[in-house]
Amino acid sequence: MNKIVKFYHEMGSPPSFYRITGHWLKPLLILALLLTVYGLIDGLFFAPPDYQQGDSYRIMFVHVPAAWMSMFIYFIIGVSGIIAFVWRMKVAEAVMMASAPIGALFTALTLLTGMLWGKPMWGTYWDWDARMTSELILLFLYIGVMGIYSAYDDDPRKAARLAALVAIIGLINLPIIRYSVEWWTSIHQGASISIMGGNSGIKEWSMLRPLLVMALATKFYYLYSMLHRARSYLLRTEQNKSWVSKQFIEN
């Protein structure tokens, strides 16, 4: 128990966060790469074709993990936003601001792959169905968090606190958006076509396996990329502290 508490406190201080996570980067990257390669090969070549959609469903192995990540990362941003705002923890600020661009990219990737998938499925690239619409609004939330941070570029501390506030507001807002958009589509368009048959369409292990592998791969990639960015964020914002100059002398 004491070890966990100690670890928690260490992760809260920028120098030890920097030191500890430095050891994690390489394994995370290797894991992410291996899993991606395996997941893609498995998904694109070995998983059986879908009995309705044929081969075009295979984009799911990118689309679905990306969609999961887009929401997961916003959740991380919201939670680290709360920590950053209430306890003024610098590492939480770093995690929040490091996560934002990655999350925005995953959101954009979700939208893009969704559009590519939509063309053969619905005959159109874009359909204002509930998921796509809320995903698009999620992208605006990401842009808002990054936008407010970059607008206050003369004072990173203040920028991070305001971005944290925006992230918290977004976190509260997200379920409301989700609910209202779903309600909106159910009224205006009848039940929209569910691409996956509500996820329950996948019953075969050989289809599920690459999906789960890709989901893991994106998680590891996120961890790697986020830590990498968070470390450089800390270096940048703490550039006048002695621990940073020590890092550079040692290397």
Binding site: I137, F140, L141, I148, I177, S180, W184
Partner: peptide
Amino acid sequence: LLSVLIMPLLAPVLIFGAG
């Protein structure tokens, strides 16, 4: 920036109101 920040907040209001 203000528009970007409050558009997601206003989206539900628009849905219910115009609806």
